[in-house]
């Protein structure tokens, strides 16, 4: 009897069973979970995106923590502390999500403090006035929410779940920022000027948070095919500006774009040209505060090393002690 192996024609020749399963799950809009098989590119892409996102939350604590001791009232101080604490929490949710893909916390932290990892360029801008706490909440967190709401449906389960928690908490951030600006705009001439000046500085960097234009966004197409990303950069940016214009009217601030106008045909707000050279400069590490932000993170990590080591040593000692007690107890029986 001859043993003939009939090729299985039902499966595509160059695709493995696991890959087919993965593709089917993505196709069905289902979720990929940590122990599922996934293409190396998918894993890499997710680790990059999630860890960058986590770093952004952690570095993002700095521009605001700067104002905790200078907040104008005890209430504002408490709010700001809660917000900065949230950012720390968001960073941790995201690091945990990245860890489910096999990345280690230590590797991610090392990459950040060595200047090898990226984080959102927005946090490299300074916060010289109190009104900046308002602009960060309204514009920066507003843009973040716009970006993050669709990420709640990202195809990778742990990432989507982390984003659900984050989005719930971000809406407080945006509202408190809006309220700071609203109060300033109802104040003295100087306070109104302070608010407007701050909006002028943050508006364009906030629009850049959505990333480069679609035709210059190398990772976007693959990310969308994998359903990690659900909308293009330009699409989300447009959505954000459409929401912003009526909110600016409520505040009584002007948006610093002379070309901004309503397009009757598309029923959208057309915006002026974005200065992408600035974006690339800041991303390349030449923004106003890049060096300072990284140095502060590095210092915090190094200053905290003894605490981490001490806690680990204590835990090891306690475990050993418990084990010893158990052995002694068994021996006495």
């Amino acid at each position: 009897m001859t043993n003939t192996i009939t090729p299985d024609t039902s499966a595509t020749a160059d695709i493995s069973v696991e890959e087919q399963q993965f593709n089917d799950l993505i196709e069905a809009d289902s979720r990929i979970e940590p122990r599922d098989w996934m293409p190396e590119g998918y894993r890499k892409s997710l680790v990059r995106q999630i860890s960058q996102h986590a770093h952004s939350e952690i570095i993002g604590m700095q521009p605001e923590s700067n104002w905790i001791t200078r907040a104008p009232s005890l209430k504002r101080k408490a709010i700001l502390m809660a917000k900065v604490q949230d950012e720390a929490g968001h960073g941790l949710y995201l690091y945990s999500a990245a860890q489910t893909l096999g990345a280690t916390r230590d590797d991610m932290t090392d990459a950040l403090i060595a200047g090898k990892a990226r984080y959102s360029s927005i946090f490299n801008y300074p916060t010289p006035t109190w009104a900046d706490m308002g602009s960060i909440g309204w514009l920066v967190d507003g843009a973040a929410i716009c970006n993050q709401v669709p990420l709640c449906r990202a195809s990778y389960g742990p990432y989507g779940r982390a984003m659900v928690r984050i989005c719930k908490e971000e809406s407080f951030h945006q509202r408190q920022g809006f309220e700071i600006l609203l109060e300033l705009m109802a104040g003295t001439q100087e306070q109104r000027q302070m608010a407007q000046e701050s909006v002028d500085r943050w508006y364009w960097p906030a629009l850049m948070m959505f990333g480069p234009p679609d035709d210059d966004s190398p990772n976007s197409a693959q990310s969308m095919a994998w359903k990690i990303k659900r909308h293009s950069n330009d699409e989300l940016r447009q959505r954000f500006v459409n929401m912003l214009v009526p909110q600016a009217a409520v505040l009584g601030v002007t948006l610093p774009d002379p070309d901004l106008h309503f397009n009757e045909q598309t029923q959208q707000w057309d915006l002026g040209e974005i200065d992408w050279t600035e974006f690339h400069e800041v991303l390349a590490g030449r923004g106003p505060n890049n060096a300072q932000r990284l140095q502060r993170r590095r210092d915090a990590h190094e200053d905290g090393a003894w605490v981490r080591d001490a806690a680990a040593a204590y835990a090891i000692k306690q475990t050993a002690r418990k084990q010893f007690a158990r052995t002694a107890e068994m021996a006495s029986k």
Partner: peptide, 28 residues
């Protein structure tokens, strides 16, 4: 990793079961 990883479960209210919410690092 210096500190081990822990999975966290939260009971949101009496009468409900603990539900997995995420993970964290801690020494003990």
């Amino acid at each position: 990793e210096i500190w081990p990883l822990w999975e966290v479960f939260v009971r949101s209210n009496r009468g409900l079961s603990h539900v997995h919410v995420g993970s964290l690092h801690a020494p003990d």
